[in-house]
Design a protein around this nucleic acid. Structure first.
Lengths: 111, 111
DNA sequence: ATCGTTTATCGTAGATATACGATTATGGGA
DNA sequence: TCCCATAATCGTATATCTACGATAAACGAT
């Protein structure tokens, strides 16, 4: 399916349905919401902590983390054999802003 | 998959990953985001208007609307052979609040 | 009553998502 | 060097999503 492309204006000025949808999609699973919520409380943690948190296999958790990373909501830095995860605050902020902008048209009208 | 049940405390006090995820999921497709965005600008409209808006078949649009209705984000009232759609402002407000609460733990800590 | 318009639903093909166990890869430590 | 712990990836079964055309349902209008 193809939607009209938005011109990529100087640094994310406009509300972009595609990128908003992709962030929502990443948050569209309870496990991933719990991960984000947890990271926000705990600030940063190892993958294993999240595995302990959720009633899911390690491989499944890793998959969910990958999904969140690809959406840009979470960052992971490898520290030896471990990986330390934390939120990408900037991206979450963008998300929050977009939610507020849900009421703004691409033409910039106020709601 | 099963996550711990939250007690249903008096009227949605706590952050509930399940219901937040289900709203995000509903918004996890560009077509549905565009519908919500459009409805917010236009206030209310017929299904056909949305069909015109999107590069999708009528049946597909109807399906997306059903999805949004099931998530509670959109309401549709039948008016003869037509159906008039509008946002459920209350639900959208709840969504906005939950996004803000993403940083609040179920234990009520501030971020 | 019949026709036309509007919308929902059905059936279905193909793509994605979700879950798991098994395996691989990376390093730290004995 | 050889294990052990950690985490990513692979393979895969099942479920859900997304799209469409065809059909059905609801109703206004002629």
């Amino acid at each position: 399916m193809q939607f009209k492309k938005q011109s990529i204006s100087a640094e994310e000025k406009e509300f972009d349905p595609e990128s908003f949808a992709s962030m929502c999609k990443a948050l569209g699973h309870p496990a991933r919401v719990m991960i984000v919520n947890y990271l926000n409380r705990i600030d940063r943690c190892l993958c294993g902590d999240i595995v302990d948190l959720l009633p899911l296999a390690q491989s499944t958790v890793s998959q969910h983390l990958k999904c969140l990373k690809e959406a840009g909501l979470v960052k992971g830095e490898v520290e030896g054999p471990k990986t330390c995860y934390c939120l990408d605050k900037r991206m979450l902020k963008k998300f929050t802003r977009m939610v507020a902008d849900l009421g703004l048209s691409p033409h910039g009208e106020k709601q």
